[in-house]
Design a binder for these strands. Structure first.
Lengths: 340, 340
DNA sequence: TAATTTTATGTTACCGGTAACCGAAAGCGC
DNA sequence: GCGCTTTCGGTTACCGGTAACATAAAATTA
């Protein structure tokens, strides 16, 4: 591998001069610079980041810890994040926790040994706080994305789960629905809690009773989750007065498994029952917008998250904690219908 | 930041002993090992990969160069790749070229300076060969994924575009279609060429004429591509005898923009026209399988690609070039119908 | 018990850069 | 022509590990 020493020898200067040319630091005579640049080109030299980071104490690398990039919501976050990072000269290491705190721990280890300059993370649960503290102990700033965790002090970038939830339920009520079930994600994830809060408060504000068995909890991610089937069946078996006329699915994946379950029961959406959810259902939305959703600006979340992170890394605006909460866009489409 | 020197001091041994404990190399007395491990735990030491890679000449990091992880096909590849890499102790740096060779060059530079041990790449076009050569010059193995490029010598992992294409067209012909249009990706991408070859040969084998204006080329990625509209309009303006009764879209994104274009023309699928495409249209397929597609095992492609790459990195099986071509699954669904 | 081998640990140098310091050459004022 | 300031470039040491070699202590053998 070509090093600055090879360049130095070829250009007949000291390695330090080569370093100076590369980093545009210090005073270098034009003729010397040209000699060195010629040698660099001829030998195809590329600086060794590892060596550089050893003295500079920064790697120009950021860690991205998400639950699953094959989930369109997260892949958009990842894309926005990567774009923002590259624009200002950072690399991105990616990882997928699958909502599993064991995996999360391992990835944090990986990020630590890679000496990333910062981490953008969608924590698996409140227990993640310990892991983030571990980063802190090593002076690695972390910015939370999509989810908060109790006790975390620092920046975060979120979609407004509460507000989106309120508007979705408001819309259903507006359409004449009174029996609205919520199929939520796990309550140890903040977005699930917020969506439930929005759901409950909106019902209350509209003087609608809350039925205990209207609320259930499943995994946020498994599209083919078997338990959705039984949850939906139970809801549909309630007597006519109590049977929900609308289901609020806490995210797009849950919505899809709900659709599947309803289909198996021979029910049609929206004729027999309305369905709303969080997050866009891509890419069908482009030619056949079907779901009434609260669409979150995922790519924007990723972009802002990285911007915040880099500001922390580079010690700008260290004075305050910033909490950006981006409102979702409510798109009323064909999965909801007005009650007669 | 805690180093082995801090550990050494605390445990009252030499740094080398600490290194040996960490790497399980050499002979260490049990009591010494325990002393050192205690110190490591107490100080929360994590090895510095950069320093390590400086002597070992490997970073345990792989580069993943794809066109766009927010495209479900590539995000699945990325997921499969990341999983396979982590399983054997490698990290993954990700990047998105957007089919842009400029960006590709920059990312190759990034990978070079990061001294990744290997690169898994979906090249933007045949011109990418120069970039891959640049990696070679630095002794960094590259494995191609999804696409081949002319003149490349090495491993690659592909979906069988030719075979998938043949089967899709075969299916359309079987359903009685005679006028089949192809809306292809750019011909400087191998998958587009292969899909066109499959299309042409299948027509020929069935003694169907090829109309020049049945074949058009657009971008592989922009869902909202304006030019799809005009292409579809032109096809639909052909006189009744020549007007295509089926469109073969070269990938899922093109299919979606075709659907949109057809919709704007007031045409229904499959009543007025049939549509087939490459790649699954996720995640709707789980509750409402609509498109007749040639589904590629994306995650599997990523996984195998990384396996091949790591074997190259670790110098196993260096003797031969391996070319894995995974067959797509043809799913006949509702976007195609039998001609009367 | 002395010689020899094995085990356990330390010392030194190096990986590829860069910060900090230093000195020669060139420019400048008088 | 002499002293002073800039400009330009070199030397040295260090970042945090590890390979290679060296050596002390313990175990084995003669």
């Amino acid at each position: 591998m070509v090093t600055i020493y090879d360049i130095a020898k070829k250009a007949n200067v000291s390695p330090m001069t080569v370093s100076r040319v590369i980093n545009n630091s210090g005073n270098i005579r034009l003729t010397t610079r040209e000699k060195v640049e010629k040698a660099i080109k001829e030998l195809g030299y590329v600086p060794n980041s590892a060596a550089r980071s050893l003295t500079s104490n920064q790697t120009k690398t950021l860690g991205l810890i998400l639950t699953d990039i094959s989930n369109p919501f997260f892949s958009k976050i990842a894309r926005g994040a990567e774009d923002a990072a590259v624009e200002v000269g950072y690399r991105v290491l990616m990882s997928n926790t699958d909502e599993d705190s064991e995996k999360e721990i391992n990835y944090i280890d990986m990020m630590l040994s890679a000496r990333v300059d910062g981490v953008l993370i969608a924590p698996t649960s409140d227990k993640s706080l310990d892991q983030i503290k571990r980063l802190r102990d090593h002076n690695i700033p972390a910015v939370l994305i999509d989810r908060t965790i109790e006790g975390f002090m620092g920046d975060y970038v979120l979609g407004d789960s509460y507000e989106g939830s309120r508007k979705l339920v408001e819309h259903l009520i507006d359409y004449g629905h009174r029996n609205i079930a919520l199929i939520n994600g796990p309550s140890n994830v903040s977005t699930a809690r917020e969506r439930q809060r929005g759901y409950l408060e909106t019902l209350k504000l509209n003087d609608l009773p809350v039925h205990e068995n209207y609320i259930s909890e499943i995994d946020f991610k498994s599209v083919q989750a078997g338990n959705t089937q039984s949850i939906v069946e139970q809801l549909m078996q309630l007597n006519e007065k109590k049977r929900p006329t609308a289901i609020f699915a806490a995210n797009n994946f849950i919505a899809i498994s709900v659709m599947k379950a309803l289909k198996e029961l021979g029910l049609h959406v929206p004729e027999d029952i309305s369905v709303v959810c969080f997050d866009e259902v891509e890419p069908v939305v482009y030619f056949d917008p079907f779901f009434t959703v609260a669409a979150q600006p995922a790519s924007e979340l990723g972009r802002i998250g990285i911007q915040f992170l880099i500001e922390r890394v580079e010690q700008k605006n260290v004075d305050q904690e910033r909490k950006i909460i981006l409102p979702p866009d409510i798109h009323i489409r064909k999965s909801t219908r007005r009650m007669k």
